[in-house]
Amino acid sequence: MNFLDILALLARGAGYTVLVTLACSATGLIVGLAIATLRRLRLPVVLPLLDVYTYVFRGIPVLVLLFIVYFGLPGIGLKVPPLLSMVLSLGLIAGAYLAEVFRGALESVDAAEILAAQASGLGRLQVLALIELPQMLRFAVPGMVNEFTTVLKYSPFAYTVGLPEITKQATTLTATTQRGLEIYLAVGLMYFAVFRILLIAVRWIERRYRVPGMVPA
């Protein structure tokens, strides 16, 4: 078995790696956006709850939360499948981090523009949807890329709950061939490749939606 064979066998797991990464990133994106938006509306009771959420989910290790969800919840009668377990751990944690990214980006939106929008008669939600969020999302691109990369790098945890992604293929392969060195080097290369591909995709999207001359206030 040569290096190419190893790569080919590992590649079978790449689909799952991408699946886990996309599912968790999407969850993080939705949760992060929801939190950032709710926070912007300054609802009295909700605000402290949001702070607690971001604090707690940024303070717990991904692996611990994953084990709570996958191994712990069945004990109280909730059986969660592996992919959903990843989403409810890595995805929710990514959401907490992205909420902070979005919070910072929202602060970069020019306050005068918001005032102008309100003065023209737009409601609070309209201002958010039409002025603040479109600008904020563009400012948040570097932070988002950073967080999606982090999600990709934590995606190997999926092997601990039995998802057959790249690292799972590698552990099986190492057990049968005893050639861990080539195998894990190949794994490293594979993640690097996935990372570069995702980066190209993000850059393409970013360029597609870039507004010429707009900089954070």
Partner: peptide, 14 residues
């Protein structure tokens, strides 16, 4: 760019 867990496995199992 390399996941930490892969690096640890490389050192430990590789």
């Amino acid at each position: 760019g390399m996941p930490l867990i892969v690096l640890l496995f490389l050192l430990y199992y590789g």
